[in-house]
Computed example of a mutant assay.
Amino acid sequence: MLILDEMQSRGHEALTLLHHAPSGLRAALAIHSTVLGPAIAGVRLREQDEALAVRGALALSESLTLKAALAGLNYGGGACVLMMPEAGVEDPHAREALFRALGRQVQPLASRVVLTEDIGVTPADIAFVAQETPSTLGMNTDTSSITGYGVYRGMKAAARYALGSESMRGVRVAVLGVGAVGRTLAAHLHREGARLTIADERPERAVALADELDGAVVTGPQEILDTPCDILAPCGYGHSIRSQEVSRLQCRLIAGGEHHPLSRQGEDAVKEAGIVYMPDYAINAAGLIAAATGVDATQAAERVYQTVARIISTAEQYAKAPHVVARRMAERRIDLIGSLGRA
């Protein structure tokens, strides 16, 4: 990947590599846009190499820009992807050192970036970051469970367009990835009577959840793409559905908590296949809304529901694909608000 070409094609402002040998900090910090305000950067921690960390930070930060814009927040988009230290972070002092090192490295960028939790990171980790920089959000917010509930509410709004009803009773939903967000989503769907198929790259996690949710069927992460279902809900780490795999899908709607489950080529492929795609930045914003504004889970999820409803209403009015409408709505707000500073 030619990094500068990638940044130019996506419209990124900056990419910074962070390093602190004693704590094991190695991270890619991407700032996509600060047009609407400082970039909210979700912090992720997982085992991956440098190329994946950079690619993930660039993709995630663009998604955060669109998410904040659609949600009506005065923030831009960023992402901070941490590579797992060789020594791990099981030692609590090592974990503290890692996240305080991150906070200290980001402090000079405090006017441009705000860090919040994402996959593999907890509110306690962000509290460590906050000891070194004031530019944090979400320390006191259970963003994962709020995000999961918001995805559930947004899915119902999208189902009204794709399936003709927002009721989940008897609806076949395949959930790919049952981490914190996927588990919460599955629990809400099960409570309403959905017929669940679940998969995770850690099979024991899917089996454990199926034991809790009576009737849920477990399959493999690849096999779930071939599962006949009404809704496919990707809730993994990103790019769960490759463009060449779209022909395998047997769903009518894709709606889940995962950031960028599809590439732009994949989006074109699902549109061609007649599958409705509600993009991640429209449907998984509840946790971000709660962290940024202080509203509770119900209020944050209702904002997601209203956003998705507005997208599908416009899609119906202009006979456009919902994911195309969602991106144009986000970009329009960025252009309009951004123009105020150029008047």
Rank of each mutant, 00 (worst) to 15 (best):
Q105R: 13
L115Q: 05
L115E: 08
V106T: 06
I126Y: 02
A127P: 08
G120Q: 05
A110S: 14
V129N: 04
Q131P: 09
A127W: 08
V113T: 08
A110W: 09
T116K: 07
L109D: 02
G120C: 02
P108G: 05
P123F: 05
P134R: 11
A130I: 09
G120M: 04
P134D: 09
T133K: 03
Q107C: 10
A110F: 10
Q131Y: 06
R104H: 14
G120K: 07
G103E: 07
I119H: 13
R104P: 12
Q105V: 13
P123M: 02
R112C: 03
D125L: 00
P123R: 07
V106I: 06
V114K: 10
T122E: 12
V129C: 03
L115N: 06
V113Q: 04
L109M: 11
A110L: 11
V121C: 01
A130Q: 14
E132Q: 10
P123G: 08
V113C: 03
A127N: 09
A127Y: 09
D118C: 01
T116D: 10
S111E: 14
V106A: 02
G103F: 00
L109R: 14
L115V: 02
V129Q: 06
A110E: 13
A110R: 15
I119K: 13
A130G: 12
A127E: 14
V106Q: 03
I119T: 14
V106S: 00
D118G: 04
T133R: 02
P108A: 04
P123A: 04
T122G: 05
E132N: 04
V129L: 01
F128I: 09
P108E: 04
A124D: 13
I126M: 03
L109C: 05
V129E: 10
L115I: 05
A127V: 07
V129T: 10
E132Y: 00
D118L: 03
A130T: 09
A127G: 12
A130C: 07
S135G: 07
P108W: 06
P134N: 07
S135E: 06
D125C: 04
A130N: 12
D125N: 05
V114G: 07
G103R: 00
V113P: 00
V121S: 01
V121H: 00
A124S: 13
A110H: 12
Q105A: 14
P108F: 02
T116Q: 11
T116S: 11
I126P: 02
A124R: 12
V113R: 06
P134S: 07
S111A: 15
A110M: 11
A124V: 09
D125T: 00
P134L: 09
